[in-house]
Design a protein around this nucleic acid. Structure first.
Lengths: 236, 236
DNA sequence: AAGCAAACTTGACAGTGACAAGATTCTGAT
DNA sequence: ATCAGAATCTTGTCACTGTCAAGTTTGCTT
């Protein structure tokens, strides 16, 4: 019983993976009548999309496999066939989440680089604010990626995407500090501090716990968050 | 078939709430024979204790009202009578969590004050490490208190204890910075930054996301965490 | 002593994840 | 071309869940 692990990536700019190509192939090869395709076409991708809607709509705790199946218009046991169990689906969801996260961060960073020139501080702050914004925009997915114990981080796909996000963090802080975190313990500590700071801000803000910051006007809040992030980053 | 499981709030120094007093009153008024008390004695307290065990054992997601009832040796619908629904129980649990949290923090702080003299930095770092340790020791409860949306923070008891914890944070940072956060915006920002930093560290460490820090030897890790916390606290 | 309110139990219902077994459709070797 | 075999999806079932309604027990008040 070999599961094919094609995957959707409807959020990522361009599908580059082998799986992505394979899917595109399949799609074009099938008849474009939308009615009654053979089995379903690429149910896996449809389920992932439905699952993301379910996650966004009902949150991580009220999330239901059967709800996902209903959204995708298939039988209640169909998801299990593709993802094993609910944690398997969460694992796949988290992986797509990391891909989206990285993509969003990249665009943020580029935009900041264009505006602020080569000001490393502005870039790092922009990336940090991006982390917070991502959490606010995708609360359940954010928790799945950065807090929950349900996704299986031993899974190859998830492990890879999560590591890519982490390495991007090291890059960003390394650029700001003009040093490679892997070579300099102090810089590595700065990277950890930066992550902890943005993550703490994101989690507390999204959870509605830190009302003082919530109630600040947008501009003021962004200014204050940026200050905190840069204070964490460095160079102590 | 009535099991008595009296004993409430074993973690909190002294029960001060109206509910606490009422409970204590009931207790002394009843016969001290442990056999078959009228209805159960103080089921509410027993349920809270059972719920805490359930939470610690099964986590916030696999938490089950019926499991709590089973632990307490009562019928499956008994908890609902005292707490309404599962969120009501979570609300009560979070409130006891905050009480314990504050108590632990106080002892940590006192111990640091005794050892390190009047070194404010050592005290603040100790409190911060206490936050992290609390999260590691009570992961599900920690998430209930600081991340989850299920407890009802409009509830009087929870609102009160949560606010007390927050005000303690302001006190601690205020003492370190020799200023009242409410009077000085920069100091308030420092308090927020400190909270975000310790919370981020706690959440990432507990979630197993920040392996670099996890793998550090204990002494080294504590040193590094302390540095991060103090860096966040200012005085930038 | 009687009645009333609170505490707890019992029973039922719709919803859940997981599993097994069946039905359908695709694939590839001949 | 055909036909086994495999992959995909459906149907049915099970134990479990939270919540509600109704019933029973118990303590309290007058």
């Amino acid at each position: 019983m070999v599961k094919n692990k094609a995957s959707a990536e409807s959020f990522v700019p361009a599908p580059k993976t082998a799986a992505g190509k394979k899917m595109a192939l399949k799609k074009t090869a099938s008849k474009n009548t939308f009615k009654t395709r053979y089995h379903h076409g690429d149910l896996r991708a449809a389920l992932l999309e439905a699952a993301e809607a379910e996650l966004a709509g009902k949150g991580i705790e009220a999330f239901s496999l059967r709800g996902v199946a209903k959204r995708a218009g298939v039988s209640h046991a169909a998801p299990a066939h593709h993802f094993g169990d609910v944690n398997g689906l969460f694992t796949a969801l988290a992986a797509t989440g990391y891909r989206r996260f990285i993509a969003v961060q990249r665009t943020r960073q580029k935009r900041a680089a264009q505006k602020g020139g080569k000001d490393g501080a502005a870039q790092l702050a922009a990336v940090g604010l991006g982390y917070v914004d991502f959490a606010m925009a995708n609360p359940a997915l954010f928790r799945l990626m950065f807090s929950s114990k349900r996704p299986d981080f031993c899974d190859g796909e998830l492990e890879e995407t999560a590591r890519a996000a982490f390495e991007k963090l090291l890059e960003d802080v390394g650029r700001y500090r003009n040093a490679n975190p892997c070579d300099d313990e102090a810089v590595m500590a700065s990277a950890m501090a930066t992550w902890a700071m943005v993550h703490g801000l994101a989690d507390l803000l999204e959870g509605g716990r830190i009302k003082y910051l919530q109630n600040l006007p947008r501009k003021k809040r962004e200014q204050m968050l940026s200050d905190m992030i840069l204070r964490a980053a460095g160079p102590g």
